[in-house]
């Protein structure tokens, strides 16, 4: 399949697809981080995670409209406000969901999967009722609209670079929060030994709620980033949930480095193959590869061997 292209063309193709893959990587990573926190730390399967992302995307869309209508002078900065609002909205909804549904199901992981799937249907239909079935897009501020011309063939869009910066920043923040803050060590204490954590005075119910809310909030940020590269529709989130889960499982839940590496390899593989094989076959091959690797390494790529 390479023989039709010259070496420079191939180089540019790989560079372009690699960069396109990096944007996919950013969305995967943001989605997977939230999911990895919820699944890895709490063992809960949140099938509505994609819908939390879409909530963030709609919040971003609303914010951009509000800025365009009322503060056109500040339009260039709306995205930062939107990101914060998206995080807060998704986190608040997450806390509510944890309180009403999830906390009753901690000892039944497979049932959280069904309940959150139901939740995803409710959220999708709500979006459809509120925002309509048509996909909406946001207007990209001027400063994000351009692109850098790297070589004759390769140009890198600014919004793509920006989304990646967000992903990296959020990842770093999550890492610091989970592994360098006392809050993070409390969360990890609850994961490792719930009764013991409770016995030493950690409010485990509150930790669970905040952890779940944090995971959902990060999905909200992912939604903000998502608006930069795709249009938002009521069921757009559903397309991402399986991929994201594979990213989390492939990376080995509870390992941030694993999540990063796995999001990177899956997005790059998919993006590069897409050019040569077309979107659907690329996706089939990526999924198939991940499934097969998981058969041989069910614990994921980055997990420690511990005594059960």
């Amino acid at each position: 399949m390479f023989s039709d292209y010259s070496a420079t063309e191939l180089g540019s193709i790989f560079a372009m697809q690699g960069f396109a893959g990096l944007i996919l990587f950013a969305v995967f990573l943001l989605m997977a981080l939230g999911l990895a926190i919820i699944f890895g730390q709490m063992g809960v399967i949140n099938m509505a995670h994609g819908e939390f992302m879409i909530l963030g995307a709609y919040i971003t869309y609303l914010t951009s409209n509000v800025f365009a209508d009322y503060f056109p002078a500040l339009f260039g900065g709306y995205f930062f406000v939107a990101m914060v609002l998206a995080f807060l909205a998704a986190a608040a909804l997450g806390a509510l969901v944890e309180w009403t549904v999830i906390r009753r199901l901690y000892h039944r992981p497979l049932d959280t999967l069904l309940a959150t799937w139901g939740l995803s249907l409710l959220m999708q239909q709500s979006y459809r009722s509120i925002f309509g079935a048509r996909e909406v897009g946001v207007e990209v501020p001027d400063w994000m609209a351009g692109s850098f011309q790297v070589t004759d063939f390769v140009e890198l869009p600014v919004n793509g670079l920006f989304v990646m910066c967000i992903a990296v920043a959020v990842t770093l923040a999550v890492y610091l929060l989970m592994f360098r803050s006392s809050w993070g060590s409390r969360v990890r204490a609850v994961v490792q030994n719930r009764p013991m954590a409770g016995a030493v005075g950690i409010n485990t119910a509150k930790m669970d709620r905040m952890t779940f809310a944090l995971g959902c909030g990060i999905a909200g940020i992912a939604g903000s980033a998502f608006t930069m590269i795709g249009s938002t529709g009521p069921s757009a989130g559903q397309d991402y949930i399986v991929d994201t889960f594979l990213v989390v499982v492939f990376g080995g839940a509870a390992s941030i480095l694993g999540t990063v590496a796995s999001a990177f390899s899956i997005s790059q593989a998919q993006s590069t193959m897409e050019f040569f094989l077309g979107g659907s076959m690329a996706k089939v091959l990526t999924l198939l590869t991940v499934v097969i690797i998981l058969m041989f390494r069910p614990q994921g790529l980055f997990t420690l061997k511990v005594r059960k």
Partner: peptide, 25 residues
């Protein structure tokens, strides 16, 4: 390989996704 529980659920879901994409593609 002792894959079970939620991992199995997710992998079967991926398989159904694969087959759908194949049929449509």
């Amino acid at each position: 390989r002792r894959v079970s529980g939620v991992y199995f659920a997710i992998i079967t879901q991926a398989i159904s996704s694969i087959l759908t994409i194949l049929i449509i593609g």
